[in-house]
């Protein structure tokens, strides 16, 4: 099988799927041309992510990675969500095929984009280095045109 049972479970039964009314923050990453877009909605109480939702355009592993990432940050402090790495998402999914690792990178970036949106909306200052662009470490990075 291409995907682990965990990936298939999160793909077929995504957790925290859907949109959110009046979210405190929204993060969207990816582009249609490349074939995957993730949008993550956050509800934040104090510094705790009290609720999270997502919608994703993409392949099975993109949907599974979004689902897993939302599970991993739900109920956590923002500071902890910012520590979420794509490697942790891959591990939690019991691995992804090499050419699908970029899906986990997108999930990490989507979480960060949502937190950044929250900081921006609320005038909270932050270290821009925390939201550095991706390092271009994916196997297919730069293949596009």
């Amino acid at each position: 099988m291409l995907y682990s049972e965990k990936v298939m479970d999160h793909f077929k039964n995504p957790r925290n799927l859907g949109t959110m009314d009046n979210p405190d923050a929204v993060g969207e990453v990816g582009n249609a041309k490349c074939g995957d877009i993730m949008r993550i909605y956050l509800k934040i109480d104090g510094d705790i992510i009290s609720d999270v939702k997502f919608i994703t355009f993409g392949c099975g592993s993109a949907i599974a990675a979004s689902s897993m990432a939302t599970e991993m940050i739900k109920g956590k402090p923002i500071s902890e969500a910012l520590q979420l790495s794509n490697k942790a998402v891959v591990e939690a999914l019991d691995g992804l095929p090499a050419h699908k690792v970029h899906c986990s990178v997108l999930a990490e970036e989507a979480v960060k984009a949502a937190v950044k949106d929250y900081y921006d909306k609320n005038g909270i200052s932050y270290d821009a280095a925390q939201f550095a662009e991706c390092e271009g470490g994916c196997a297919h990075c730069g293949d596009h045109e």
Partner: peptide
């Protein structure tokens, strides 16, 4: 995603379908 590359089918692009 089914071809293992980032670009979709060259056939669909050749008949003028946009990437998305």
């Amino acid at each position: 995603c089914t071809s293992g590359s980032l670009d979709p089918s060259h056939v669909l692009l050749a008949i003028g379908r946009p990437h998305e």
